[in-house]
Design a protein around this nucleic acid. Sequence first.
DNA 1: AATAGATGTAATAATATGTGTTACAATGGA
DNA 2: TCCATTGTAACACATATTATTACATCTATT
Lengths: 142, 142
Amino acid sequence: MQFSVRLPVATHILLCIEKFQGECKTTSTFLAGSVNVHPVIIRKTLGQLRTAGLVEVAAGVGGAKLTRSPKDITLLDVFRAVEENEDLFHFQENPNPQCPVGRNIHRVLGTRLEKIKQHMMDDLAAITLEELLNAVNEEDVP
Amino acid sequence: MQFSVRLPVATHILLCIEKFQGECKTTSTFLAGSVNVHPVIIRKTLGQLRTAGLVEVAAGVGGAKLTRSPKDITLLDVFRAVEENEDLFHFQENPNPQCPVGRNIHRVLGTRLEKIKQHMMDDLAAITLEELLNAVNEEDVP
DNA sequence: AATAGATGTAATAATATGTGTTACAATGGA
DNA sequence: TCCATTGTAACACATATTATTACATCTATT
């Protein structure tokens, strides 16, 4: 079980957009060169980030920019933008209601796993793009 | 992105094994009836739990039992037994080393995501089979 | 207006993972 | 020996992920 590469890729994209703002036009081809994926993947991801209100993309001319300050964008925002499925865990359908374990497992285990998911969300919400950008700038080892 | 149903299924199996210990023989067919999956899925999962040292399965005669007290088995034990992949998050291969973001993203984002994973592990380790079994017994709503 | 470069999106393919099922050899008690 | 059961391989199928091609649409610039 592994998370898809979408969260890291989307984060990479956002960091590049901010990092190169004013220096160069951050087109899908440019971003694809940094991330090392196909430009269409970048455009799809940018589409999700745009739908989530995190970026504005200049149709026709090209390039993207953040809609708000990096300190006001968290990894939870990014996660929600690119992962449509809110249910992190899921259960076997129709456990046996005649069995005391079967008729309670979903509720008993579900409430506990839900809390774990909430912790993960809280952790993601505590990490801002600004923090990541500072780390990239300050800890850069060329 | 969703976790597979393996952790909930394996937990269900372990709870049933303990719950019905002494009452009936917990064969793969019996367990399959409670969980509502194919008996072979149960046997595969029991195989993983056995490899992890959590259960003993009686070959030939059938039935399984826990190797230690439910209070000494946590969801982290179960998670590790059924999820072979330790890397929860993963990154796009070969980001551009010429780009300041590309050459730092893995380290900067990776260390932070690693902490989130560790939190999840800690949360899983805090939940014991005993706690779940008590909840199933006490909060049973037939 | 024409052009060139860019985006938005659909369609397709390749691959991996998850789950269900059949089949059968091996096990061990009755 | 017989029978229920386990262990495991093989296969099928669905779904998710990622890569790629193709093309209509957009917009600044010439």
